[in-house]
Design a protein around this nucleic acid. Structure first.
Lengths: 227, 227
DNA sequence: CATTGTGAAGCGTTTCACAGCC
DNA sequence: GGCTGTGAAACGCTTCACAATG
C-alpha cells in the first residue's frame, strides 16, 4: 500500500464515484480503453463538468484532447474508495431481509464478504445462509475482532435496530448500513448510511401527487436521464 | 379531496418529511400530543432550525410558545406527501429480491399495496408470493391500467433493468424505484429513485479508509446523531 | 483541435439570529 | 418565557466558460 488519500473529497462526489466506477468497469469489459468526460457523463446521467470536477479531486488523471484511460481511472477510483482490499461485513438479523442480503451473493463479489450473520432468535441459530452459519448475537464481539470487521449491517425490525447498532458499535464496528426504518443514534465518528424503502416510496408518492395536480416535470434524485 | 399542494417544496425537504412523519406517528402512538421543533430535531437527528424551515413549507401549523400538535402535523405531512390514499405498485422481477420485497409486507401496510409481480421467466409464473400471483411481464400494461398503478419497482438483474424500466414506462408508470445497479435512462417527466447496496457499501468503504489513514470524524449522510 | 482542469458565477440548502406571537 | 417562523448570512455543490495542453 503506497499511499493514503490526502485530499478532502466532497460528500456529493464520494457518492458518485461508485457510479463512475461501475460504468468504467463495464467499459473496460467492452474493451473500451479511453473515455471522455462527455461520454462518461452521458452514461452516468450527469453533467460533463461535474464528471471532470469530480475526477479532478482524485488528481489529474485525464489527457487533454484525449480523455481518460479507462483502466487507469478504474484503478484510481478504486484506490480512492478503499476498494483495493476486502471489507468483511457482519449482518445483524437473520430474518427475511438478512437472509436475502446474505444469500444474494453480490456482497462478496463486490469486495464485501459476509463475515457473519447473527440473530437474537435462538431458533435461527445454526442454519446456513449463503454459506454462512447464523450465530448468536452475543458472538458479535468475537466475530468483529477475529475477522477485523469494520462495517455492520442492521437488518432487524425497527424496534430492535437501536440495540443492534449499539451492539455493533460496542463490538468495534465503525460504519453501519441501516435497513431499519428508524434514525439510529450513534457516537460521533461512527458513519451511518440508511436504506429505507418506505421512505423512497413516500418520496415518489409526493412527486406522483404533484404530477396529478399540476402537469409539470419533476426532479428525480438527480438520477434520471433522457434516453 | 379538498385541495392540491400549491407551494413548491425543496427536494431536500421532501426527502426529510417521511422521517418526520415516522417520528410523529411514533409520538402519537406514545400518546404525546405536542412536540417542539427542538425535540423533533433531536429525534430526527437534524438541526431544529431545519425542522422549522421544513415544516414552514407546509404552512404555519405550529403554535409559538407551545410547539406542534402531533396529530394535526401527521395529517398535514401525510397530505403533503400524497399519503391520503393508496399507491399500488407493480414489481418487475420475481427473483430473490422481488420475492423478499413482495413477501415483506411492509409495502402494503404503508399504503403501497403490491398490485402485481411480473417476470420474464415462465417457470416462475403462477407461484404466489406474499399473496400475489406472479404473472408474465407481457401482462404489465394490463396490470398497470386495471389497477391504476403509477409506481413500478425494478427488481431484476442489471442487464435487464433498462428493458424493465422501458416496459414500465410504456405500460404507463410514471415513477420507478430501481434496485438494479445501473443508471436508468428514462423520458423526461418520469421520476426515478434508486436503492443500491453496493454503492452504499462503497461509500462506507471510503470513510472507513479515511478513518484508517487520518483519525478524524466523518460525515454520515447527515443521518447519524449523537446519543 | 478536442478535451481536460479550474476559477468564478449561480443556485439550492443549511444555519444563524431574532422579531413576532401565544 | 418559550417557541415558531423567517429574513439574511454562510455554506457547499453545480454549472459555466475558457485558458491550458497533449
Amino acid at each position: 500500500m503506497p499511499d493514503r488519500p490526502r485530499r478532502r473529497i466532497p460528500e456529493a462526489t464520494v457518492s458518485r464515484l461508485p457510479v463512475y466506477l461501475r460504468i468504467l468497469n463495464e467499459l473496460a469489459a467492452e474493451g473500451v480503453d479511453h473515455v471522455s468526460s462527455d461520454r462518461l457523463a452521458e452514461l452516468a446521467g450527469v453533467n460533463a463538468a461535474k464528471v471532470r470536477k469530480d475526477l479532478s479531486y482524485l488528481g489529474s488523471y485525464g489527457t487533454r484532447g484525449v480523455g481518460y484511460e479507462v483502466s487507469y481511472l478504474v484503478y484510481q477510483v478504486q484506490r480512492e474508495l478503499g476498494l483495493n482490499h476486502e471489507w468483511p461485513v457482519v449482518i445483524v438479523g437473520a430474518g427475511n431481509l438478512g437472509q436475502a442480503l446474505s444469500g444474494y451473493g453480490g456482497f462478496g463479489q463486490r469486495g464485501f464478504p459476509v463475515a457473519g450473520i447473527v440473530d437474537v432468535d435462538t431458533s435461527k441459530i445454526g442454519s446456513v445462509i449463503g454459506g454462512v452459519r447464523v450465530r448468536h448475537i452475543d458472538d458479535l464481539p468475537q466475530i468483529v475482532a477475529s475477522r477485523q470487521v469494520s462495517i455492520g449491517v442492521v437488518a432487524v425490525p425497527g424496534a430492535s435496530a437501536q440495540d443492534a447498532a449499539e451492539r455493533l458499535v460496542r463490538a468495534g464496528v465503525t460504519s453501519i448500513l441501516n435497513f431499519a426504518p428508524v434514525v439510529l443514534s450513534v457516537p460521533r465518528g461512527i458513519t451511518v448510511r440508511k436504506v429505507d424503502l418506505a421512505l423512497e416510496l413516500q418520496i415518489l408518492s409526493y412527486y406522483e401527487q404533484r404530477r396529478a395536480g399540476t402537469l409539470h416535470a419533476v426532479p428525480g434524485q438527480g438520477k434520471s436521464a433522457s434516453a
